[in-house]
Nucleic acid binder design. Structure first.
Lengths: 206, 206
DNA sequence: GATAAATATGAGCGATAGCTCATATTTCCT
DNA sequence: AGGAAATATGAGCTATCGCTCATATTTATC
C-alpha cells in the first residue's frame, strides 16, 4: 500500500503577481521534466528555474507531487480539448469516416509536446495523479460511447460498453506507440498507419 | 536528457552462498515494491528485508536501479516464456484459431503476479530499464512477424511489419488494461473480451 | 499616507537516501 | 592444516531532499 501525498493547490492565487508565480512554477516543472528528467525535479530546483523562492512554491503547492499533477493536468486538458472537439465534429458522421478522423486526432493529440508526453508516460510514478488521469480516461470513454450509441444501427456488436473499451484502448495504444517510435519509424508509414488503424476498428464495429 | 545509472550486476556470484544472497535481494525488492511501493524500496530497506547487509547488496548490484531492473527482467522472462511457448504451439494453426490463443495467452501473461505487474507499470520510472523492456518487445514482435509470414496467404495486408505492429500493440494494450481493471470489471466479461479482441484482430488480418 | 493583507524570501533543519570501507567470517584449494 | 579468495557486515559519511518559518517586500484598501 502506498499513501498519497496531498496534490491540491494550497491557496487560490488572487493577485496578478501570484498568478504569474504559479504559472512560472508549473512551466518550470515541465521544462525540468523534459530537459533533466524526473529525478532532477526537486522542489528547490523547480523554484530556482522558476525564478522564485522555495517558500513561494509551498505557498501554492503542498509539495512536489502537486506540481507534477499540475503539469499532467495541463497536458491532459490540452489533449482533451482536441478530443472533445473531434468527437463533436464527428457526431453525425458515419462510422467509417468518424473512426478515421478519431484515429488521426488521437495521433495529433499524442503529438502535443511529445517530449513532455514521453516523460510523463515513462518516468512519472503514477501515484495520486492516477485519479486525475482516470477522470480524463472516463471522459474519453463516455464521449465515444455516446457516439456509438447514436450509431447503433451501423454497429454489429453485443455489449456496447465492451465495444467502447476495445476501441478506446486500441486507438489509444496505437497512437501512443506510433508517436513514441516516430523517430525510429519512417514518417510515410504514419499515413498508412491511419489507414490500418481505421480498418482495424471499422472492421471490428461493422 | 537523463543520464542512466549503471544497471548491470557487479560481480558474478559463483558460490552457493552468494547466489542465495542475490536471490534474496531480488525477491526482497519485488516484495517491497508490491507491499510498500516504489518509494520505500531503498537500498537499506531492501537489504534489511533480504536479511543481508547493505554492503552485500553493493557487492552484486551497483545501486537501487539495478535491483529494480533485475526484478523487471525476471518478470519479463516469465512472461516471455509463456508467449514463446504459445507462439510455437500456434505456428501451424490457421489465423482464427491462432489469434484467439494468443489473446488468451496475453491475458494470462499479464496475470502472472498481477500486483507486481501493476507496480512495475504504474510506479516505476522507466530509466535505463527501458532498453531491456525494448528487447522483450522486439522479440514478441519478431515472433509474431514470423508467424504472420508463414501465413501470408491467409492475410490481406500490404505491409507485414505494420500489420505486426498493429496486432502486437492492440493485443498487448487490451490485455494490459483488462487485467489492470479486472477488479472493477465483472469477471464474466473476460470471456467476452477474448471473443471481441479476437474478432478485432482476425477481422483486421483477413 | 497609513494600515492590513497578500505575497515573496532563503537560510537552514531534520530526515533519509545512496553508498563506502575497514573489518570479520566463510569457503575453496592444495 | 593453513593461507588465499570469496563473501558478509554495518557504522557512518556525504549529499540531497522536502519543507518551515521568521522576516521582508509588494499590493490593496480606506
Amino acid at each position: 500500500m502506498v499513501r498519497k501525498p496531498r496534490t491540491k493547490p494550497r491557496k487560490h492565487a488572487s493577485q496578478e503577481r501570484s498568478r504569474a508565480t504559479v504559472d512560472a512554477l508549473v512551466e518550470a516543472t515541465a521544462r525540468i521534466l523534459v530537459k533533466e528528467g524526473f529525478d532532477k525535479a526537486s522542489t528547490n530546483r523547480i523554484a530556482e528555474v522558476a525564478g522564485v523562492s522555495v517558500g513561494s512554491l509551498y505557498q501554492y503547492y503542498p509539495g512536489k507531487e502537486a506540481l507534477i499533477v499540475a503539469v499532467i493536468d495541463r497536458h491532459n486538458r490540452q489533449i482533451m480539448q482536441v478530443v472533445r472537439r473531434a468527437l463533436a465534429e464527428v457526431a453525425s458522421q458515419p462510422i467509417a469516416k468518424a473512426v478515421r478522423r478519431l484515429v488521426t486526432v488521437a495521433i495529433e493529440a499524442h503529438r502535443i509536446d511529445p517530449k513532455l508526453h514521453r516523460v510523463l508516460a515513462e518516468q512519472i510514478p503514477r501515484t495520486g495523479a492516477l485519479e486525475n488521469v482516470e477522470a480524463f480516461n472516463r471522459e474519453t470513454y463516455a464521449l465515444l460511447r455516446t457516439y456509438l450509441e447514436g450509431h447503433r444501427r451501423e454497429i454489429r456488436v453485443t455489449d456496447l460498453g465492451l465495444a467502447t473499451f476495445v476501441c478506446v484502448t486500441s486507438i489509444e495504444a496505437l497512437a501512443h506507440n506510433a508517436v513514441l517510435r516516430s523517430e525510429s519509424l519512417p514518417e510515410e508509414l504514419m499515413g498508412t498507419l491511419v489507414d490500418e488503424a481505421t480498418r482495424l476498428v471499422v472492421g471490428y464495429l461493422q
